[in-house]
């Protein structure tokens, strides 16, 4: 009986927390209608999430493109199909690695920072202070970050894809002695507009999922410095897990 009651209470607790997180997102979106968006805050957060992440996105995108080109060359060379290296790099980046790695990098840099910042605001009663002043923390803290993420992450993904393709080009042309003409020429005939729109759709969904998790976890932080540190870890780990789950779901929904 004890086992049944404990399992039941764990299930209720889990459902309660999921319900709370849905309410959290709903309330933030509701604020967009009732409170309106402050352009200045959105711009400030877009710079924080987007512009300040651009260097690590260039770095990871460039090396990812390079390694895909190298691995792709070894595989395609076995079938004598190295002419398809350009499309292979581009499709791998645009359809999969661009949106996934960008979202993970942004979660690790900006998402974790926001969880820590909002978490420490929570434990030091700064969020309570906002509420008491009649300032809705959802409108003041949550909504600008959500909107900024939805603007910044698709742009960073596009950035990642382009830089990655150039990284692949560097390896193909300079190291593997392929011609730049065949690298880019074949790419244009294999990469369709749908691949690019699907990449952007994935980036938008990942932006919502990652920042929903990071902001929700930060907003519900309890218990001082230790609470902030465990909330930050939890936010990054959950973000990465949910990016992979949603990546599979979106790939199966969006198709080829």
């Amino acid at each position: 009986m004890d086992f049944i009651s404990r399992t039941g209470s764990a299930i209720i607790d889990y459902l309660h927390k999921r319900g709370q997180s849905v309410f959290f997102l709903f309330h933030a979106l509701q604020c967009a209608v009732t409170c309106g968006c402050k352009i200045k805050s959105i711009l400030r957060q877009t710079i924080f999430i987007g512009v300040q992440s651009s260097f690590i996105i260039i770095l990871t995108g460039f090396f990812t493109g390079m390694v895909i080109a190298l691995q792709g060359f070894y595989s395609l060379n076995k079938f004598g199909a190295t002419a398809l290296l350009g499309p292979a790099v581009a499709l791998t980046l645009i359809r999969e690695l661009g949106p996934v790695l960008t979202a993970i990098m942004v979660a690790a840099r900006a998402g974790s920072a926001l969880t820590a910042e909002i978490g420490s605001m929570k434990v030091t009663e700064q969020i309570d202070a906002l509420e008491v002043m009649g300032i809705d923390p959802y409108a003041y803290l949550i909504l600008p970050n959500m909107v900024a993420a939805v603007i910044a992450i698709p742009l960073l993904t596009a950035f990642f894809n382009v830089v990655g393709i150039w990284g692949g080009c560097l390896v193909s042309v300079k190291m593997l002695s392929l011609s730049a003409g065949s690298y880019f020429g074949e790419m244009a005939s294999y990469v369709e507009m749908r691949d690019i729109t699907n990449s952007i759709i994935k980036a938008v969904v990942f932006a919502i999922v990652v920042f929903w998790i990071c902001l929700y976890v930060g907003f519900n932080t309890k218990g001082g410095a230790k609470g902030v540190s465990s909330a930050t870890t939890k936010a990054v780990v959950l973000s990465a897990i949910y990016i992979f789950i949603w990546d599979y779901l979106l790939t199966s929904i969006l198709g080829y």
Partner: peptide, 20 residues
Amino acid sequence: LTNVRKKFGYVFQNGALLDS
């Protein structure tokens, strides 16, 4: 609640100033 809170000022135990 937001309407009622407009009547209040609250001095928190540790100030609760926004450190940003």
